[in-house]
């Protein structure tokens, strides 16, 4: 099939970018979305043009690298998928597909569709860990954890750190990302000890980096490729209130 593409091209972080139109013939429904872009890039290189830069790695929905805003939605249409899991079956012959990078002040564009998500790293460094030195750990079964808590912690821990929540949020808020980590660790007895400090520091860092505030819109949750729910944000809010006392 033949499709039209509108893709954000930007040479470097400080240059001005813009949407560029492409027409691509010979696209197969069997391709994944990223394979379609690979194919586009092959044709661009063969024409002597520069390929579109985009991030990807595992191509099986687990590394969190891929990060495309497709037709108005992070990771495109479809529930709980990453861009690499999106298939061309979602499109029809003649469709126009608009591809943009994540947009947020805290995620500046590096090139084309690649953004700098190191702000997430900084938030994590502010407290997204349990301070357990190697060698200090007690026997793994010494602290039983109720299955429901372990399962809920797992649900939060499934976060890929892809940033779709920020991309989807009208406020470019990182609350779902932050809450997933805080919630995971707060649910486990091993991590619960540091919850107050963790909540305070991670939120302060999130604010400092220029993410917006959560106004409970819920767009993040709808676009999260791992289906992380905003009830974790409520837990984060509780932890934050608790941290003040």
């Amino acid at each position: 099939m033949k499709i039209k593409l509108k893709i954000w091209r930007q040479e470097s972080p400080d240059s001005k970018g813009g949407l560029v139109d492409y027409e691509l013939d010979g696209v197969s429904k069997e391709m994944s979305f990223l394979e379609m872009l690979d194919y586009l890039n092959t044709t661009l290189i063969e024409r002597g043009e520069e390929p579109v830069a985009f991030e990807h790695d595992c191509r099986e929905g687990i590394c969190g690298c891929c990060s495309l805003f497709i037709n108005g939605r992070p990771h495109g249409v479809g529930a709980e998928i990453t861009t690499c899991e999106l298939r061309m079956t979602a499109f029809e012959n003649g469709n126009t597909i608009v591809i943009e990078p994540w947009r947020a002040k805290a995620f500046p564009v590096i090139r084309d569709l690649i953004v700098d998500r190191s702000a997430f790293e900084k938030i994590m460094q502010a407290g997204g860990f349990i301070s357990a030195n190697a060698g200090a750990a007690p026997e793994a079964n010494s602290i039983p954890i109720p299955k429901e808590l372990a399962d809920e912690a797992f649900d939060a821990a499934a976060c890929l750190g892809c940033g779709a929540c920020v991309a989807a949020c009208p406020n470019a808020s990182a609350m779902l990302f932050v809450s997933a980590k805080i919630s995971q660790l707060a649910l486990l007895p091993q991590g619960e000890v540091e919850t107050k400090r963790r909540a305070r520091d991670m939120i302060a860092k999130m604010d400092e980096l220029g993410f917006g505030a959560c106004s409970n819109i819920g767009a993040c949750e709808a676009e999260c490729p791992k289906g992380i729910e905003i009830s974790h944000i409520a837990r984060l809010n509780r932890a934050f209130v608790a941290s003040a006392f």
């Binding site: 943009e100 805290a106 406020n171 470019a172 808020s173």
Partner: peptide, 12 residues
């Protein structure tokens, strides 16, 4: 401050 968090809007 929420508006400031996304200086460049999406095209779509």
């Amino acid at each position: 401050s929420n508006w400031r968090a996304r200086p460049q809007p999406y095209y779509w």
